[in-house]
Design a protein around this nucleic acid. Structure first.
Lengths: 217, 217
DNA sequence: AAGTAAATCCTCCAAACGGGGGATTGGCGG
DNA sequence: CCGCCAATCCCCCGTTTGGAGGATTTACTT
């Protein structure tokens, strides 16, 4: 969605990794039977792909690794990314739990689709990913977006936010005092108030809270 | 994409915010002319919507605020979210720069579309958002996903990562020593090595780097 | 077998941190 | 007008941190 199918230019060359033989062949059939797509190779596991990768120059990898080798799928993405940073990898799995999703995205996957997706939508998503997009199944996209949502109430005053920002920069009381043109005593007062409002007792906790809850900037 | 159009159930009721009168009316026409959608109200600015919100119960807000009131658009999303946490807001603007995009997402927008989107795709995206998805234009989605990508090389050893995690938790040398069953001296050694590898000199900087570069977990 | 890296332990010491108090000013709302 | 809160300043004092050094053991690599 949100991008046109390309049928006139050179077809999109891709490789797939799918452990189930039947599904692998179905995927291959789907891709090779659709103008604009060309499945160069299909592997049952990531190791096989990594072994053949030097001789391949696909435009995209469709990675479908089911339970059992869960950790492997993420590691494989990282490995592919280390060798071909520009090669987009799209996950297509049954894992819908957050941990796996975010682990895959952190490892470098550009898209994440859950199985059960309709063939036409799969093709559109693949095209999207190859064109610089990041196709995600709706629930996945929502969860990703939600990681950006910030708690509405930020109890800190403007001045306190300024001080907190300096804390995050690792500045000392003295540097902060100089930067904000106030005395070190005042800095301490602000920091004490910040700690109280955030329910923390150390700089490190305050920094973590500031970053996680996006209290600054 | 990735979701079906719903024409049989009750139509999706939405309100739109769009400062340009012509575009506002075109949007209204498009929505009201499509089975499954119903545009309850259209406002020229966010303030007007907020004033009427108590009497409205839309299933989605389509927010299209162009340049000039940039900050206002983000603030409006935050305000809507504060009053109706469950009401999804989809941005539809010309702003493609990262700052604005992430500010909107942080404020609580569930989707982000750039103008120029085809009508059919807009409708699909709206339906997607209402069904729990997070429609994003391809370039936007990619940028969002890239914020998860982690630098491939993490120079820290396993033990150092454990210590760093404790640092992020705000633990003292002593607590860390007890938690990891080592002496405080050893903890200090690890921390010194961590600081050197990360090129930082304080706890706070190390914590920021750990979170930003996803060095832990 | 030698070399390297990681993990463990140690001392000395100055600087920074954080908890407990308290005080003054200015502004804003009831 | 009075109270509250943010912002500013100050004290005492124990704890924690981090820089600069050095040492040992284990384990992996060459």
């Amino acid at each position: 969605m949100l991008s046109q199918r390309n049928t006139t230019e050179r077809p999109l060359e891709l490789v797939i990794v799918e452990d189930d033989r039947r599904q692998r062949e179905l995927l291959e059939l789907l891709l090779n039977g659709t103008p604009g797509f060309y499945c160069r190779a299909a592997f049952p596991d990531a190791e096989a792909l990594l072994a053949e990768l030097p001789g391949l120059h696909p435009g995209l990898v469709l990675m479908d690794i089911d339970l059992g080798s869960g950790r492997n799928g993420v590691a494989a993405v990282a490995e592919i990314r280390a060798r071909r940073p520009e090669l987009p990898v799209v996950m297509l799995t049954v894992h819908e739990d957050s941990d796996y999703v975010f682990a895959a995205l952190c490892a470098g996957a550009v898209g994440y689709l859950v199985k059960g997706i309709a063939p036409a939508e799969l093709l559109a998503a693949v095209q999207d990913a190859a064109s610089g997009g990041s196709p995600m199944s709706p629930q996945i996209a929502r969860r990703v977006v939600q990681t950006f949502h910030v708690g509405p109430a930020n109890p800190l005053t403007e001045r306190e936010k300024e001080v907190l920002a300096q804390l995050c920069a690792g500045e000392s009381y003295r540097s902060i005092a100089e930067a904000l043109f106030i005395s070190g005593h005042t800095v301490r007062s602000h920091i004490k108030n910040i700690y109280e409002k955030l329910h923390v007792h150390t700089r490190a906790e305050a920094v973590v809270k500031a970053l996680k809850d996006r209290l600054i900037q």
